[in-house]
């Protein structure tokens, strides 16, 4: 009698677990589909809404830099300078932030005494929680002022490099300032990701390097950095995504102009996100639709960046 009881409850439990599996699988699948649907929905919205102005556009949207869309007749606008500015600002931020983030993460994980490491880690997390408008205020109220003399110095000694050619903006509200503020903004997220992958490097790999007579730095180069590479790239791409889409800080710091300029120390350039934020309130005529078209380009750039990142991460998968 007891045995039959046991076997039936056993079967009931098994069945219930199977039901749980089914529910979970369905839930996971549903969420996956939902994400795809949202993505497709956003893309469809952007395409539909921008179609109106793109059809009426007199200029080539992809190669033109002018922005004359707030009209009902013959708008002519293009996203070239905006796209360029967006990518440039994000690239500056990435180039500045990634090495620093790796350095901080290495210091926290491998060099700092445990107490200091904990405090530093906490500070980094805190930095990540600061709203971007505060970064913008800090950038325009303090950083830009500090940077102006530094820019003059850069121009004097490195002006022969086209990037740093004069005349230097006296206000400091330049592409480089925007890039620096963006770098500070994305630093915590890259640091946090990098620190996490460094912590995951198995003890056995580290000991393997040390047992060969590697110094601590050699051990890091041999065992830690190669192992952490996908994580570092992932973190950098997360940061890049944030830098590409960042609005407030850039809108506040950069004194905008719609030109394609490599001169980081002169005023000029603008990013898509900041442009949308600044123009939207006054948009009339085809204006809104044109801004949505710019948004579509930003969407495409972000998507492309993520796909490239995925490709890079997975390229040497069998070695991971």
């Amino acid at each position: 009698m007891t045995t039959t009881d046991l076997s039936t409850t056993g079967r009931a439990q098994r069945q219930r677990r199977r039901l749980g599996d089914v529910l979970f699988a369905a839930g996971a699948q549903g969420s996956g589909i939902l994400i795809l649907a949202i993505l497709a929905g956003v893309a469809a919205f952007l395409i539909l809404q921008s179609f109106d102005s793109l059809a009426a556009n007199q200029a080539n949207f992809l190669t033109s830099s002018e922005w004359d869309a707030n009209t009902r007749e013959e708008p002519s606008f293009g996203v070239a300078a905006l796209a360029f500015g967006t990518v440039l600002a994000a690239a500056i931020a990435l180039v500045l932030a990634t090495p620093v983030a790796i350095g901080i993460a290495l210091f926290i994980v491998f060099y700092a005494p445990r107490r200091i490491a904990a405090i530093l880690g906490y500070l980094v997390d805190l930095l990540a929680a600061i709203p971007s408008v505060v970064y913008g205020l800090w950038g325009i109220g303090w950083l830009v002022v500090q940077l102006a003399p530094f820019y003059a110095w850069l121009e004097t000694y490195f002006g022969w490099i086209p990037l740093f050619a004069g005349p230097v903006s006296t206000t400091g509200r330049t592409m480089l300032s925007a890039g620096i503020v963006l770098a500070v903004m994305i630093l915590p997220i890259i640091t946090a990701m990098t620190r996490d992958v460094f912590l995951q490097v198995p003890q056995s790999h580290r000991e393997a390097a040390l047992a060969l007579g590697a110094t601590r730095w050699e051990m890091i180069r041999m065992a830690v950095l190669p192992f952490g590479r996908p994580g570092i790239i992932g973190g950098a791409m997360l940061g890049l995504g944030r830098a590409l889409g960042e609005t407030m800080a850039v809108a506040m710091i950069l004194s905008p102009s719609l030109v394609i300029s490599w001169f980081l120390l002169q005023s000029g350039n603008q990013t898509i996100a900041a442009h949308i934020a600044l123009q939207y309130p006054e948009a009339t005529g085809y204006g809104v639709s044109a801004l949505i078209a710019a948004g579509l380009v930003l969407f495409a750039i972000t998507l492309a960046v993520n796909m490239v990142a995925r490709f890079v991460v997975s390229r040497r998968k069998e070695f991971a």
């Binding site: 198995p202 056995s204 000991e207 393997a208 041999m222 190669p226 192992f227 040497r316 070695f319």
Partner: peptide, 13 residues
Amino acid sequence: GMVFQRPNPFPTM
């Protein structure tokens, strides 16, 4: 030199 209990070749190499 040292050889460990679990084989630990560098996985990325």
